[in-house]
Design a protein around this nucleic acid. Structure first.
Lengths: 117, 117
DNA sequence: CTTGTCCCTAACTATGTAGTTATCTAACCG
DNA sequence: CGGTTAGATAACTACATAGTTAGGGACAAG
């Protein structure tokens, strides 16, 4: 086989994939990622940019870092976070495509319902 | 701009993306998808294949259908579910790649720690 | 050393949801 | 018609986690 992938139903792999998606399934974390797209930021800058509380932000940053999506580099008293894996934006774009397809399809169905009544 | 994508920080789009990922962030739902990969199945077949309870399964199928990932076609007294959008497996493969990278990297760090002590 | 700043962590609350049990509807069968 | 089966739905419990508040540790400035 070329790669393991998720063809098989190995529960361990499935759990890992689910966990990875879970990391990306919170608006606050996606917010953080979009703001980090332009470059590294420290926690205070991110707090200003996103409007998230410092403690809350810190927790999200930990989750993203442990998932291998961000890296943390302490500089003096502050900590700078940076996107390690820009591929995640391809992920998000893919999701956007799926979603817009879905929305367009729903709009079409809705229009059909409208014209029928 | 070519497409809207998630370059901007539009909270509506972010929420939609987060919801989409949330659908894919449960082991049971990924299980369902892997079993449906070989073709359409009805609820009972899926219940046998996955070991999930009927009611629970029904809820997951509803979520997946509403997300535009599955389609439902009633046949007699049973309902057959089918994958509408095979692209989701590209998603999962991408996630698998990210995860294995991460795991390998962790293994390397761990080995380095070991050799140091 | 003292003070202030930045960040992390612990403890707590509130909310969302996976899974179960029980009930209900709809289609087939006698 | 009543009985059976497949599936959806409602009510409930158990658990996970987002967000807050409070406190602690590390570094810089004085």
């Amino acid at each position: 086989m070329p790669k393991t992938k998720l063809s098989n139903a190995d529960p361990t792999i499935l759990a890992a994939v689910a966990d990875y998606f879970k990391v990306l399934s919170e608006v606050s974390r996606l917010q953080i990622l979009t703001h980090l797209r332009s470059g590294p930021m420290n926690v205070m800058e991110l707090s200003d940019a996103t409007g998230l509380g410092q403690a809350n932000l810190s927790k999200h940053l930990k989750v993203l870092t442990q998932a291998g999506i961000l890296s943390r580099s302490p500089k003096g008293t502050s900590a700078y976070y940076e996107i390690v894996d820009p591929v995640i934006f391809k992920f998000c774009d893919l999701a956007c495509d799926r979603i817009s397809d879905r929305v367009l399809q729903q709009a079409a169905s809705f229009a059909k319902l409208q014209s029928r009544s």
